[in-house]
Simulated scan of single mutants.
Amino acid sequence: MGFLNFHGHNSVSFNGHDKPAIPVSLSQYIMHYLYGANEPLILKSTDKILDVGEFGEGEAQEKSLQKFKAMSANPALQFLPHGIVMSRNAAKNVLDFVYYVEGATNGARLAVGPCICQRALEKYPNGLTEPEIKDITLFYSADIYLDLGIGFKEITNDEAKDILDEMHNRGYLHNAMYMFQKTNALFVMCNCDANICAVQRGARLTDNTDAKGPEICVRDASKCKGVKECGKCIDRCFFGANKADGDEVIFDQNKCKGCELCVTTCTGKARELTIRDDYEYEDLMSKTLLLAGKYGYERMVPYER
Rank of each mutant, 00 (worst) to 15 (best):
L148P: 03
A120L: 11
K92V: 07
L173P: 04
V98M: 00
K153F: 15
L95Y: 00
N126S: 14
K161Q: 08
D147P: 08
K161A: 05
E122P: 01
N157Y: 04
Y100W: 13
G149E: 14
P125T: 15
Y99I: 00
G171T: 15
I136E: 06
M177Q: 00
D96H: 12
F139E: 05
K92C: 08
D162V: 14
R109Q: 11
D143K: 10
I133E: 13
G151H: 07
A104Q: 15
N184D: 15
K161I: 05
V94R: 06
A185V: 02
D165K: 09
R109A: 06
G113M: 04
H174W: 01
N157V: 03
L148W: 01
D158L: 11
F97R: 08
I133S: 08
Y100A: 10
D158S: 15
G127A: 04
F180K: 09
H174E: 03
L173W: 08
D135M: 11
N93D: 06
Y99F: 03
R109E: 09
D96E: 12
H174D: 00
A185K: 04
N93L: 03
T156H: 06
G107Q: 02
D165H: 11
Y100E: 14
E154T: 05
C117K: 15
T156P: 06
A160R: 06
